[in-house]
Computed example of a mutant assay.
Amino acid sequence: MNNIERHQYIMRQLQQKGVVNVLELCKQLDVSSVTIRKDLKLLEDRQLLFRTHGGATQVNPYTTDRTVFEKEKIQTEEKLAIAREAASLIIDNDSVIIASGTTVQAMAKEIQPSLNLTVVTSALNVAVQLVKHPHVEILQLGGILRKSSTSVAGMYAERILADFFCSKLFLGVDGIDLDFGLTTTNAQEAHLNRKMMEVSQKVIVLADSTKFGKRGFGRICGIEEIDRIITDKGISPHTVKELERAGVKVTIVQ
């Protein structure tokens, strides 16, 4: 293939899969990685794609920090369906950690009031939602309050976590990249999320399909370190396949 034919092939693969991988393109086109990287740079310069670690994507992979008040107006139906599915995983006498984010906040609203639960949370809006439930014991983490997420982060919250172990962590994220892993826009929040993972038996990620292929500033963990993702039908079959290959159970809500 000449340059134009290679570029057309790359764009067709992007349209079909949403992402392309340098090593796969090398095998498919029988050219070196140097050639493919030059092709991707040229296509990026023409604003036809965005380069990522090991490949490229059609959508801008970099997320910016937005307030919960902005986020809660986005993908509302998808978030509600994800929230209901996640809440159904909570059983009587569970001890769970609920992190921050609009999707986990929506999940808190779906938790059955009759359940006896112990809930550890960094999010003020989650605590406010659950305080009306008579059988839910809430442990609110302390620390530096992030106004954009109405949640706390920092060493004080991390120290408290060291004294507990919970059956499930329900985690919201700003980005999920197959190569880079799970991210949020704040480094302190990412570090606290990591500590939450260390004291949880299972890590369940709640993320609508717009979060895939995105990257935030703070890396939480790799894909292989989580147990389950609950998302909506907007996720690509290719992404589902790669997640399952990494050992992650994927639940797609309607």
Rank of each mutant, 00 (worst) to 15 (best):
M1I: 10
N2Y: 07
N2P: 00
N2E: 09
N3V: 08
E5G: 00
R6T: 01
H7G: 01
Q8P: 00
I10L: 06
Q15V: 06
Q16H: 09
N21E: 14
N21G: 02
L23S: 11
C26N: 06
C26V: 06
Q28A: 14
S32D: 06
V34L: 05
V34T: 09
T35G: 02
T35M: 06
D39T: 07
L43T: 02
L43F: 05
E44M: 10
D45M: 10
Q47K: 15
L48F: 08
L49H: 03
L49F: 01
L49A: 08
T52M: 09
H53C: 01
G55P: 01
T57V: 11
V59A: 09
V59W: 13
N60H: 12
P61I: 09
Y62L: 14
Y62G: 04
R66C: 11
R66Q: 13
V68S: 09
F69T: 15
E72A: 14
E72M: 15
E72L: 15
K73E: 15
I74P: 09
E77Q: 14
K79M: 08
A81M: 12
I82S: 01
R84D: 00
E85P: 00
A87I: 02
S88F: 04
L89M: 12
D92K: 13
D92N: 15
N93R: 15
D94A: 15
V96Y: 05
I98Y: 04
T102D: 03
T102F: 08
A108G: 08
A108K: 07
Q112A: 11
L115M: 07
T118A: 10
V119K: 04
V120G: 11
T121W: 02
S122I: 04
S122N: 13
A123R: 11
L124D: 06
N125K: 15
V126K: 05
V126I: 11
V128L: 13
Q129R: 15
V131N: 02
V131T: 03
H135T: 14
V136W: 11
V136F: 12
E137L: 09
E137N: 09
Q140C: 13
L141E: 12
L141W: 12
G142N: 08
G142T: 07
I144Y: 11
S148Y: 08
T150G: 10
S151C: 04
A153Y: 01
Y156N: 12
Y156L: 15
Y156H: 09
A157T: 07
A157Y: 08
E158K: 04
E158M: 14
A162E: 15
A162H: 10
F165I: 13
V173F: 04
G175E: 10
D177T: 04
D179Q: 13
F180R: 08
G181T: 07
L182K: 05
T185W: 05
A190L: 03
N193Y: 06
K195Q: 13
M197N: 06
E198P: 05
Q201S: 14
V205Q: 07
A207Y: 08
A207I: 06
D208P: 04
K211L: 07
F212I: 03
G213C: 05
R215N: 13
R215Y: 07
G218A: 02
C221N: 06
I223R: 02
E224V: 15
E225F: 03
I226F: 03
R228T: 14
I229G: 01
T231Q: 01
I235N: 03
P237F: 07
V240F: 03
V240N: 04
L243A: 07
R245K: 13
A246Q: 12
K249T: 11
V250M: 03
V253R: 05
